[in-house]
Amino acid sequence: MAVQVDGNRADAAIAEIERVWHLCAGTDHDGADARVFVTHDDSSETGADLDAGVVTGSVLPDLMQLITQAVTRAAIDAQKGRVVMLHAAGIQSPETGAVVALVGPGGTGKTTLVRTLGVGRGYVSDETVAVTADDTVLPYPKPLSVRREPAGPWKDETDPLELGVLAPAPQATLAAIVLLDRQDGYAGPPAVEQIPTLDAIAALTPETSHLPEMEKPMQRMAALCDGVGGVMRVTYREAEHLAPLLDGWLETGA
């Protein structure tokens, strides 16, 4: 993945990208399998064409949010057919490299989970957990998108390390898959249930990207579920309520 920046304020955009995206930084620009084109200048209106991977804008914080969307989209598209991509927050044990994927659609609160439960642990992603055929997790430690106002549309792209999480350890292996069922009206401690594999596949598949483009996608999902000892669903209200469960998921998987 390469991000190409131009415009008369390109230097400012590059500096900000390097600051908040440093956990994803690579060196092989020529070998990039996807590109996003950014223009940051005084006159560009804020906007993005995610299909084309083009982002423009004069207001840097707004531009940064759109860059995150464009890079995420391009990265996901570039991995099409290669790996299983779960809509999930990924949190890692810094000692063992074990990763728990907390799966939920947008709006579930995956970023909040990372900020709440990920402090002192490896930050794999707050967006997509990508898993290879041998259950290795490919980290995507993008900036954490922190909402500027509680109900507002704009978010500030934040260096994850500022929020207390750790860089992901290089050896990342999937240890557990947990389906998130956050309910505002739920009271009591989190309720955890094991989901039969077929039901887990049916529940997880809508929370994937490009799964049908994989070879034997249902069988791959079955192997993924079996590989972690089965999938769990957790019903809860507040992210911090899951803290007592996280260590168990990271230590033993399901």
Binding site: P196, I201, K216, P217, M218, Q219, M221, A222
Partner: peptide, 8 residues
């Protein structure tokens, strides 16, 4: 024809 299936 379906894309893929798992039977258990």
């Amino acid at each position: 024809p379906v894309h893929d299936e798992v039977v258990r």
